[in-house]
Design a binder for these strands. Structure first.
Length: 565
RNA sequence: UGGGGAAUAGUAUAAUGGUAGUACGACGGGUUCUGGUCCCGUUAGUCUAGGUUCGAGUCCUAGUUCCCCAGCCA
C-alpha cells in the first residue's frame, strides 16, 4: 500500500543535529544527554543564550535532557551570588533542568581518585617547577617543549607528594600535578598539562574541604562522563582541547564516554560579549550594573523588555555552524518587534509634550473614548481613554513650516487624534524666544471616534494624552552601547561607547492605564516603540525603558534629506 | 617555521554531484485611524587558479585570506 501524502519536509538541520541523529540511529547511544556548563563568575549574556538554546533545545527535540552544571573549579574567581543569578536567567529564558543540577565541585572526590589513578598508571606526575619554569619549558607555538626534571619520579613519590598537596602541606604554586602526555606535541594542550593546582581559597560550595583544585581540562570531560553526558557541545576555542579531553577519557575508569563537538560562538554588532569586557563595563561604571538595559546580559535584556521568546527565536535564526560570524543587532531587534507586535498592548504616551487647547471644547468637561488594545489581537479587547479640553501631543508632531512630506499638524491643517476627533490648528503660541509653547485648535464633534461622517480624509493621525488625566513618567531611551558595528577590542575599546546610548526623558505624559503596568511588562507606545516598565518606577511616577523603536520611515526620509522632495 | 578551525549577496544561513534558496538589512510600491503591522516587487552571492565530470558551492590538486592555541582561567 502506497503512502498517499508527501513525506514531511525535513527541517534544515545543523551539523550537531546531524551527528545526534546519526548516533541515535546507529545505536551509539540510546538517549541524548547534553549540558550547559556556566562558570559562576559572571552573569549570563546572549551568547550563553545561543548555547542554552542549542543544549536544552536538542535535548528536548530528541527526547533527552540537559544538565545545568556549574563549572566551579576555581574558587578564587567564583561567587555564590552568580549561581542564583544564573539559575534565574536560565529559567527566564524558558529552560528547565529539572533534577539535573550538578556542580563540578560535586565531583571533586571522584576527580581526586582519578588523579591518583593516573599517577598509579604512570600517567601523571607532581612537578616542583615554578609557574615560570613550566612556561619556559613548554616551548612555543613552533618549537617543542622539554620534559620537566621531575617527570620521572616514582609512582610512590608522586602519590606521596600529591597526597601531601591535598593535605595542605604546600603553599600555592610550589607543586602541581601534571598529566604525562607529550612535550613535543604540536598541540600545546598536550604538553604535560597541569591538572591540579594548590589553591588555599575557600570554595563557595565546598568551603575549606579542599586546597587543591582540578583545572578545567581535568574537570570538564570527566564531569561529562560522570553525569552520563553523551554530547558535550562547546565553542570553537575548545577544539584544541579535544585531544586532551579524549586522552583523559581513554585513560580513566569512566562510567561513560562523552564526545565533544564545537560550534562557533555568537558575536553581535554594536556591543561586546567577552566576559572580561562586560565585567570592565560594570566595574568601571560605564553602565549601571549587569542589568543595565544597554548590556547584552540576559538580565539586561530582560530589564530592557526583550521577551525570552524573542531571544529564543533569535538564537534559532542565527543557526549553528563552525564559521566565525557577527550577527547584526538589527536581527535581534527584528525578533523583538515581530513578537511584541503580536502580543503587546497599545498605549498612548507623549514623550516630549506640547500643550494643545481645544478652544471649542467646553471647559471642565471630559469624556471617555474607546481605544483598541491591540489591533493584532482581537482578544485583547478595548479600553477607555479620557479626552478633555487640554491635551498633550508630541512636539515633533507639529511643525510651523512643514516640509512637503510632513503629514502631521501644522497651522491651519487638520489631523486626526487617534480614536478621538479631527482637530485643526488655529493658532500657535510662542514664548519670548520664539519657542512654540502651546497650540490652539478646534475640534469637529462630528468626527468622534476618529472618522468623518462626510467622508473627508486627513493625512496624519497623532497620539495624544488628556492633560488633566495624564500620569507623569520618566522614560529612558536606549541606543546601541557602541557606536561602531564592530567596536575595537583593544585597550581603547571603551572609547567606542556610544555617548548617546541612553537618554533620560522627564515629564513624559502617559495615558492613565499605563500607571498600572506591571514591572517587566512590555507595551507599545503607539507610533513610537516598545517600552518596558522598570522596577525603578512607582505607581505615581512610572519609569519605562525603550526596548526597541518602531520602524520609522519618516525619520529615514528626514535623515536622507528627502522629506521635502 | 607548529597544531586546530573556517571561507556562499551588506549580515547570517541552506543547498549532502543536478534550476544557488531563505531570513534580516537596504531600496521602491500597495493597503492602513500607528509614517507601525500586512502585502507586492527590486537589489545582491559560491575566496583564487587549475583539474575530474554530461554536469561542481559540493569531488581532487595547489594557493590565498581570516579565526583560535604558548593560564597553575574557563
Amino acid at each position: 500500500m502506497s503512502e498517499a501524502h508527501a513525506p514531511e519536509a525535513e527541517a534544515s538541520r545543523d551539523f550537531i543535529r546531524e551527528v545526534i541523529t546519526q548516533d541515535l540511529k546507529s545505536g551509539k547511544t540510546d538517549t541524548l544527554v547534553t549540558r550547559f556548563p556556566p562558570e559562576p563568575n559572571g552573569y549570563l549574556h546572549i551568547g550563553h543564550a545561543k548555547s542554552m538554546c542549542l543544549n536544552f533545545g536538542v535535548a528536548g527535540e530528541f527526547g533527552g535532557h540537559c544538565n545545568l552544571r556549574f563549572d566551579d573549579t576555581n574558587p578564587t574567581k567564583e561567587e555564590h551570588e552568580y549561581i542564583e543569578a544564573i539559575k534565574r536567567d536560565v529559567s527566564w529564558l524558558g529552560f528547565d533542568w529539572g533534577e539535573h543540577l550538578y556542580f563540578a565541585s560535586g565531583h571533586f572526590e571522584t576527580l581526586y581518585k582519578w588523579a591518583e589513578h593516573l599517577i598509579v598508571n604512570g600517567l601523571a606526575f607532581v612537578d616542583d617547577q615554578t609557574a615560570e619554569e613550566i612556561r619556559e619549558t613548554r616551548g612555543t607555538l613552533t618549537a617543542p617543549g622539554t620534559n620537566s626534571p621531575f617527570r620521572d619520579r616514582s609512582v610512590e613519590e608522586n602519590l606521596d607528594l600529591f597526597r601531601r598537596m591535598r593535605s595542605g602541606e604546600f603553599a600555592e604554586g610550589v607543586r602541581v600535578l601534571r598529566a604525562k602526555v607529550d612535550m613535543a606535541s604540536g598541540n600545546i594542550n598536550m604538553r604535560d598539562p597541569v591538572i591540579y593546582r594548590v589553591l588555599h581559597a575557600s570554595h563557595p560550595r565546598t568551603g575549606d574541604t579542599w586546597c587543591i583544585y582540578p583545572t578545567y581540562d581535568f574537570a570538564h570531560g570527566q564531569s561529562d562522563a560522570i553525569e552520563g553526558v553523551t554530547h558535550s557541545l562547546c565553542t570553537l576555542e575548545f577544539a584544541d582541547h579535544r585531544p586532551l579531553y579524549d586522552w583523559l577519557i581513554e585513560n580513566l575508569p569512566v562510567p561513560s564516554v562523552p564526545r565533544q563537538y564545537e560550534f562557533s560562538r555568537l558575536n553581535l554588532t554594536h556591543t561586546v560579549l567577552s566576559k572580561r569586557r562586560l565585567i570592565q563595563l560594570v566595574e568601571e561604571g560605564h553602565v549601571n550594573g549587569w542589568d543595565d538595559p544597554r548590556m547584552p546580559s540576559l538580565c539586561g535584556l530582560r530589564r530592557r523588555g526583550f521577551p525570552p521568546a524573542a531571544v529564543r527565536d533569535f538564537a534559532q535564526r542565527v543557526g549553528i555552524t563552525k564559521s566565525d560570524n557577527v550577527i547584526e543587532m538589527a536581527l535581534l531587534e527584528h525578533c523583538a518587534r515581530e513578537l511584541l507586535n503580536k502580543i503587546s498592548l497599545r498605549r498612548s504616551a507623549v514623550l516630549r509634550p506640547l500643550k494643545v487647547v481645544i478652544e471649542n471644547y467646553p471647559e471642565g468637561e471630559s469624556e471617555l473614548l474607546e481605544a483598541v488594545n491591540n489591533p493584532e489581537d482581537e482578544g485583547a479587547g478595548q479600553r477607555q481613554v479620557p479626552f478633555s479640553r487640554e491635551l498633550y501631543i508630541e512636539r515633533e508632531d507639529f511643525m510651523e513650516e512643514p516640509p512637503k512630506k510632513f503629514f502631521r499638524l501644522a497651522p491651519g491643517r487638520e489631523v486626526r487624534l487617534r480614536y478621538a476627533f479631527f482637530i485643526t490648528c488655529t493658532d500657535v503660541i510662542k514664548d519670548e524666544n520664539g519657542e512654540v509653547t502651546e497650540l490652539r485648535c478646534t475640534y469637529d464633534p462630528e468626527t468622534r471616534g476618529g472618522d468623518a461622517p462626510d467622508g473627508r480624509k486627513v493625512k496624519g493621525t497623532l497620539h495624544w494624552v488628556s492633560a488633566a488625566h495624564a500620569v507623569e513618567a520618566e522614560v529612558r531611551l536606549y541606543e546601541h552601547l557602541f557606536t561602531e558595528a564592530e567596536p575595537s577590542l583593544g585597550a581603547d575599546f571603551l572609547d567606542g561607547i556610544n555617548p548617546e546610548s541612553i537618554e533620560v526623558l522627564e515629564g513624559c505624559m502617559l495615558e492613565p492605564a499605563l500607571a498600572e503596568t506591571p514591572v517587566g511588562e512590555t507595551v507599545q507606545f503607539e507610533r513610537q516603540g516598545y517600552f518596558a516598565a522598570d522596577p525603578d518606577g512607582t505607581p505615581d511616577r512610572p519609569v519605562f525603558n525603550r526596548t526597541v523603536g518602531l520602524r520609522n520611515t519618516w525619520a529615514k526620509l528626514q535623515a536622507s534629506g528627502q522629506a521635502n522632495t
